[in-house]
Design a protein around this nucleic acid. Structure first.
Lengths: 200, 200
DNA sequence: ATAAATTACCTAACGGTGTTAGCAAAAGTA
DNA sequence: TACTTTTGCTAACACCGTTAGGTAATTTAT
C-alpha cells in the first residue's frame, strides 16, 4: 500500500509547487498579472491540471488569504507578548500590523483589496474572534484604568482599526514623496492620540 | 460652416451617451462588469467606435474619476460653509465625506479601489491642494486656539484622513450586521476624539 | 499475464476581456 | 462629378477563466 502513499505525496508536492509558483509570479508581477495559464506554464503542466488541484482561481487566492491571516495573527500575538502593559501592547500591535502590511504588501493587498469579496475572505480567518480579542483585551484594560469608564469599547475597537487600516491603505498607494520615517511618525501619533482618548 | 458644428455636437452627444450608458451599467452590475463590448452594445454601435471617443477603457474610468472628485470637493466645500467654527467645520467635512462615500459607492470604489493606479488618479483631481487646504484650514485654526500649539498639523492631517478613509473602507465591505446608526456613532466618536487631541 | 478500471494529462474549445488593422460606405469638399 | 475625409463595420490578435472529451499510462482485478 505504499504506492498510493507515494502518489498522495506526489500530488501534494505538485499542489504546493503550484502555490509557490503562483506566489513567485505575484511577487514579481503583482496580483493582476497572476493567471492560471501562467501558473500552468511555470509548473510545466497543461492548464486543466491546475483544476485537478484547485477548484478555481479563487481557491488559490483563498489559500494565500489563509496564509496571510495566519501570519498576521502570529505577528500580532507576538507583539502583544512583548509587554504586560496594555498601552504598550496596543502600540506594539499597531506597529506589528503596520510592519506586516509593508513587509508583505502582497498579502495585504489580497486581504484588504478588492480582489476577493469580503464574505469569501471570512473563510480565511481561523477564528473570527481572534482579531477582536487581541485588540479588545488591552483596550478594555486601558479603559478600566482610565478616568472615564463609560467609554464604549466596541466603538473604540472600530476606531482603532480605522486608524490603522486607513493609514496603511493610504500609504500603500501613496506616491514615494512621503518618507517612511514620516509615515511611522504619523502612525505613532495617531495611536498615541487614540490611547490618550481611551483613558481620559 | 454649420455642418461641422452639427457634427461636433453629434460627436459630443455620443461621447456623453457612452459615459451615461457606462455609468448605468456600473450602477446596475458594478465596476467589474463594465466592458467596452457591453457599452458598445448598449449604445448600439460596434466596439471600435468607442475607441474613436475614448483612448481606452482607463480613459473612461478616469472620466468618472474626475466626476467623483469634483462632486466630493463640492460636497466638502458646502459642508465647511455650514459653520464658521473650525471644529464644527471639521465635523461637517467628515460627515459630508462619509455621506458622499455611501451615497456614491460607485464613485468611492473607483476613487479608492484598486481599479485605477493611484498615480493615474492624480489626473482626476482638479487641484492637488484643494483637499489638503479644505482640511488643514480648520485644523490649524483648532490647534491655534488649543493649549498645545506645537502639534504638527501635517501629521494630524494624515491622521484625519486615515480615520475617515479607514472607517469608510472597512464599513464599505462590512457584513450587514452593523447598523448604519452604529457606524455613524463610530465616526462621530472617532472625529470627536481626533478634535479633542488637536486642542489639548 | 491479461483484461478492466482508474487515473493523469493533454488538446481544443467556449465565452469572455481589451485592443487594433483594414476595409467599405457615407458624407463633405473641390 | 471627382476627390478626400469621416464614419462605422467585420474580423482578427492576444489574452483571460473554465470545461468537455479523448488518449495514454498506470493500477487493480481476474
Amino acid at each position: 500500500m505504499s504506492i498510493v502513499e507515494r502518489r498522495r505525496r506526489e500530488k501534494e508536492a505538485l499542489s504546493s509547487r503550484i502555490l509557490t509558483t503562483a506566489w513567485q509570479i505575484v511577487k514579481e508581477e503583482g496580483w493582476q498579472s497572476l493567471s492560471i495559464r501562467k501558473i500552468a506554464d511555470a509548473v510545466e503542466y497543461s492548464v486543466p491540471v491546475i483544476y485537478d488541484y484547485f477548484e478555481n482561481k479563487e481557491a488559490i487566492l483563498l489559500e494565500f488569504g489563509k496564509q496571510g491571516f495566519e501570519l498576521v495573527i502570529k505577528k500580532l500575538k507576538a507583539a502583544r507578548n512583548t509587554s504586560a502593559d496594555p498601552a504598550e501592547q496596543l502600540k506594539a500591535i499597531a506597529n506589528a500590523y503596520w510592519n506586516f502590511a509593508f513587509k508583505n504588501k502582497e498579502y495585504y493587498q489580497l486581504m484588504w483589496g478588492l480582489s476577493i469579496p469580503c464574505c469569501e475572505m471570512d473563510k480565511c480567518i481561523p477564528e473570527r474572534s481572534v482579531f477582536k480579542d487581541l485588540i479588545m483585551e488591552p483596550m478594555t484594560a486601558i479603559i478600566e484604568k482610565g478616568k472615564n469608564k463609560n467609554v464604549q469599547a466596541c466603538i473604540k475597537y472600530h476606531t482603532f482599526w480605522s486608524i490603522l487600516h486607513g493609514l496603511i491603505s493610504i500609504k500603500m498607494v501613496a506616491p514615494p514623496g512621503d518618507t517612511e520615517e514620516l509615515n511611522k511618525l504619523v502612525l505613532d501619533d495617531a495611536i498615541a492620540g487614540f490611547i490618550k482618548n481611551l483613558s481620559s
